[in-house]
Computed example of a mutant assay.
Amino acid sequence: MRIAKEDKKLDFDMTIAPSDAHNWSKEEKALIEERAKFHHSQRSPERLRKNAMLAVQYRMEHYVQDDQVTLEKMSAIEDFVKDFLKVLGINKTAFAQYIEMDGANLNKYYRSDRRFNTELALKFAHFFHTPADLWLKIQIKNELLLLQKEKQSEDKYNKYDYEKLLQIA
């Protein structure tokens, strides 16, 4: 895409291909950046909120699909809830009350003292406008990461072997 120097107007429409930026001059890049900032400034607060909510959802989806996540890089469900609540400007107590749950009880799910379940996944899904299964996939991914850690200390589980029980009988 080529932009003439005279075309500094911010209300033009354009389509940019992935490889277009390789051939742009500094002036053209600056003009595109200016246009993007202008376009962003024209968005409604609701549109900006929806975009921010989608960004959190995309991070959740990326987290679930990322095979490079380790136990040290594990993200809890609470991390994503905090991100959503920050976008919405809502505190955890108000959120807990809105989904008809005691704040202390909700914290037990956050800390994994209680297992995240389908009912909570559905509440979170409806509240944050996300797929319910995405919340459960995060829970399962985290449990699989914990399982990998436990496998490293398999010695404590060696006693649970049906063959040893059959030898005793």
Rank of each mutant, 00 (worst) to 15 (best):
H40S: 06
H40R: 08
H40L: 02
S41H: 03
S41G: 00
S41Y: 01
Q42P: 09
Q42A: 03
R43D: 00
S44M: 06
S44D: 06
P45K: 13
E46A: 13
E46V: 11
E46R: 01
R47T: 14
R47V: 15
L48E: 13
R49K: 15
K50F: 06
N51Y: 05
A52L: 06
L54T: 13
L54C: 05
A55I: 04
A55F: 02
V56S: 00
Q57K: 10
Q57M: 13
Q57T: 15
R59F: 04
M60S: 06
E61Y: 05
H62G: 08
H62Y: 10
H62F: 09
H62S: 13
V64W: 07
Q65Y: 10
Q65D: 15
Q65C: 06
Q65E: 15
D66G: 10
D67A: 15
D67N: 15
Q68W: 06
Q68G: 10
Q68T: 15
Q68L: 10
Q68P: 08
V69W: 02
V69Q: 07
V69I: 15
V69A: 04
T70G: 11
T70P: 09
T70R: 09
L71Q: 13
E72V: 09
K73L: 14
K73Y: 08
M74T: 00
M74V: 01
A76Y: 13
A76C: 05
I77K: 00
I77M: 05
I77Y: 04
E78S: 13
E78R: 06
E78G: 05
E78A: 14
D79M: 04
D79L: 02
D79V: 12
D79H: 08
F80Q: 03
V81M: 03
V81I: 03
K82I: 03
D83A: 09
L85I: 07
K86Y: 08
K86R: 12
V87G: 11
